[in-house]
Design a binder for these strands. Structure first.
Lengths: 192, 192
DNA sequence: ACCTGAACACCGTTCAAGT
DNA sequence: ACCTGAACACCGTTCAAGT
């Protein structure tokens, strides 16, 4: 695996990498995921060439920045099927993903693009999110409408993340609650 | 009103304005609402200074480009309360807005920002969309959940527009259908 | 009344040259 | 093994000077 950590690096390289990540987190938080890379390098006290040496693309930088967050998200997603009811597990997952994908402004769009781009350093993470969603949706079959797909659930979740970025987290929560009510199965089954 | 049309303009100015709008529509369609303005001017065969003379900001350019679309959208919105049931009127409105706000990539985000920015040349249009939404939501009171606000409906609609841009129009339609099911009142009223 | 294009302050990205 | 910074090709925006 590439860039899994700071092992076997020269001490100065290791320090530069750390500084870049700190500056990038600040930059992304302040200006969104499209923040200027030159400014991030400047803020880290490092040349722009060094930034590119460590992170060959904006996706790679974002992936490194999100690694810890992704790890705990996946841990949650894998643990959910055991706990609560299937519908509560799904709801918890959707809320967690929506909160995660709004960590930086523009991140929801960034992640959706990564899911559709196999070359992106974030593609594997996005695919994993999709797989976990599929499992939780399958588990909730019968409780949720028969015509609801995992893609529907992922789309709603990403849309909620976008709402969180653009409007507010409380509005995003309301959107998710609304969607969850729509997800539940009713009889007779209405057309979707 | 500023920039209401092509009246009382010198013939060359009028022609340049038209060329700029054509090039901008192409540029926005191809590269989204953040397309390069210099490229648009170049494509229109006009200097970048001329673009700024006609359209002092990207918002102004977008507003001019969307004027016809907005006019017919508002016409629809004002005519809806007379026709169909209140809930169908609301659903029709939501679908129309979601389709409109996805005319160019990035437009949903652009419009949400304009709603929150009184200085934007698109602010009045966005506020008008919000007012029409409020009226239709009020009309549908009793059919939709008592705790559902016009802001909820607008948020869902914008989120669907974003989904349309980012994923597909069919996925956006499914999101809207899901949300509409969630909007409908049920007894006993569940907490939102 | 309108247009031009240089000017300024920024970008992303690459790559030879250094240590 | 890693870093630097110049180089290139772009941007958005303004404004003096032209017609």
């Amino acid at each position: 695996m590439a860039g899994t950590g700071a092992r076997r690096m020269r001490a100065d390289a290791r320090r530069n990498r750390e500084r870049l990540l700190t500056a990038a987190d600040e930059g992304f938080r302040e200006h969104g995921v499209e923040a200027s890379l030159e400014r991030i390098a400047r803020e880290a006290g490092v040349s722009i060439g060094t930034l590119y040496a460590h992170f060959p693309s904006r996706q790679a930088l974002a992936a490194a920045l999100l690694r810890a967050r992704h790890d705990s998200l996946f841990e949650l997603g894998d643990s959910l099927p055991g706990e609560w009811s299937a519908i509560d597990a799904l709801a918890t997952w959707m809320r967690a993903v929506a909160a995660h994908a709004a960590a930086y402004r523009g991140l929801a769009t960034f992640l959706v693009n990564a899911l559709g781009d196999e070359a992106s350093e974030l593609h594997a993470e996005c695919a994993r999110m999709a797989r976990i969603t599929e499992r939780l949706v399958d588990n909730a079959r019968g409780t949720i409408g028969a015509k609801v797909t995992a893609e529907d659930v992922l789309a709603v979740t990403n849309a909620a993340a976008w709402t969180r970025e653009q409007v507010s987290s409380s509005q995003a929560d309301r959107l998710l609650d609304l969607a969850l009510r729509g997800l539940r199965a009713v009889t007779p089954e209405p057309p979707l």
